[in-house]
Design a protein around this nucleic acid. Structure first.
Lengths: 150, 150
DNA sequence: ATAATTTGGTAATTATAAATATCAACTTTT
DNA sequence: AAAAGTTGATATTTATAATTACCAAATTAT
């Protein structure tokens, strides 16, 4: 049975301005901007410079907060873990694609933090890319590696 | 041309007592024991309770130190990264093996920190296992994932 | 038009992970 | 048998990552 989602039920709609997101997460606005600068999160931006966060973004941030506060993984550690997501498999990069890709060769920060207009990803919006969006939830990354490795 | 290694050239010989290792690495003896307790390193122990470190151990520890001091990855972060090594692929675990394996299902600490007498690894010495020994060097883990994923 | 909010930046603070210091008991070496 | 080194454990210190506070300028909403 297929039911239609109403506006608030769609987890990918950019609904929350930064102050609301900060309030929901009980952190400061600046911390949110810092996570973004570090490449942990990519908020939605319309034509303006103002950020908007979706329910999915909030969930991702809850996961990041848990990693930092409960699991005691540093921001640099989270970046490093994100860099291990086999993006080349998800985006079906060729062997040749990989060779020219900075992200493929990095183990310090996630692929979506690299300039990519000159590589296979081209002008794609990383926010909408599976590599970024599917593996926010804690534990998902190992699951992914498991599935890739078979 | 095959040349025989003399004693000091074999990087796997347990040569250094803890005080020497600490001196070489310029850290305290306690820090070394702490890394061990956290599961970052497995020093050699003969029948006695005293630890001995090989050249390979020292190299591994240099890498760990770089991760902590230069890359700013916390100890918890390093453990989490180690937990992503596809041990099940290296040790050729069956699907059934995986299901009963705590390590396979963990994403917080390396496989070698788990009790394993009741799983496929049995009485194997983790110190000698490829999962532990091959991926000490910085960047090797992503390389491994890459190779596994193909 | 005015008010409210967001922007990006620097500087200061807080929290805590990582490392050190110290200890008596136990091993190993000479 | 004495000396040197190691063990594990607790308590303390240090370093610094993470966060907050504050700012004037720009943007958005009423």
């Amino acid at each position: 049975m297929i039911t239609e989602l109403n506006e608030t039920e769609n987890i990918n709609l950019p609904l929350f301005p930064i102050s609301s997101a900060a309030k929901i997460l009980d952190i400061s606005v600046h911390t949110l901007r810092m996570y973004e600068k570090e490449g942990l999160i990519i908020p939605f931006k319309k034509e303006s410079s103002h950020r908007l966060y979706s329910k999915a973004d909030i969930d991702r941030l809850i996961c990041i907060r848990k990693a930092i506060n409960e699991s005691k993984i540093s921001i640099a550690g989270i970046k490093s873990i994100y860099s291990l997501i086999p993006c080349w498999e998800i985006t079906k990069c060729t062997k040749n694609d990989r060779e020219i890709c900075e992200a493929f060769n990095s183990h310090t920060k996630p692929c979506w933090t690299f300039e990519h207009s000159n590589n296979p990803c081209g002008e794609k919006d990383c926010r909408l890319c599976d590599v970024y969006s599917l593996y926010s939830e804690c534990g998902k990354i190992k699951e992914l590696i498991t599935n890739c490795v078979k």
